[in-house]
């Protein structure tokens, strides 16, 4: 059976890019979330989806085990996505408006 993952990934990318081109910070964050899902799946497909055995030494067969290296990359990527998302969420609430075309008001004044 051929894989439909390219289509899944394509859909995720399309949705992600569309949202990232919008004005509201929250929509941009959602776009980033979709895009990182697609990137994670993309990384995992690099390890050839024909082999899907869990890479746990005591219960796997090397012939069918999945490539563990992309998995480690993706795990790292997921946690970094969490960090980036949280940071962007914090930026989104400043001034109770997430419109990125307006400078968020911080209440601070600068001498320039």
């Amino acid at each position: 059976m051929i894989s439909v993952l390219p289509i899944t990934i394509g859909v995720l990318v399309a949705g992600g890019v569309y949202l990232m081109l919008q004005r509201g910070m929250v929509r941009i964050i959602f776009g980033l979330a979709l895009l990182s899902h697609s990137a994670n799946l993309m990384l995992l497909t690099i390890g050839v989806t024909a082999w899907r055995g869990e890479p746990l030494v005591d219960r796997m067969d090397v012939a069918t085990a999945a490539d563990p290296l992309p998995q480690a990359f993706v795990l790292t990527a997921i946690v970094i996505t969490l960090a980036v998302t949280v940071l962007m969420l914090a930026l989104a609430v400043i001034g109770h408006n997430d419109d990125t075309k307006r400078m968020p008001s911080t209440g601070e004044f600068h001498d320039r």
Partner: peptide, 21 residues
């Protein structure tokens, strides 16, 4: 935006299809 999104999605799908597995 929609056009760019579709083309980016298409590209990503093409890449995955042609370069993996």
């Amino acid at each position: 935006s929609a056009l760019l999104a579709l083309s980016a999605g298409l590209s990503a799908g093409l890449l995955v299809w042609s370069l993996t597995g």
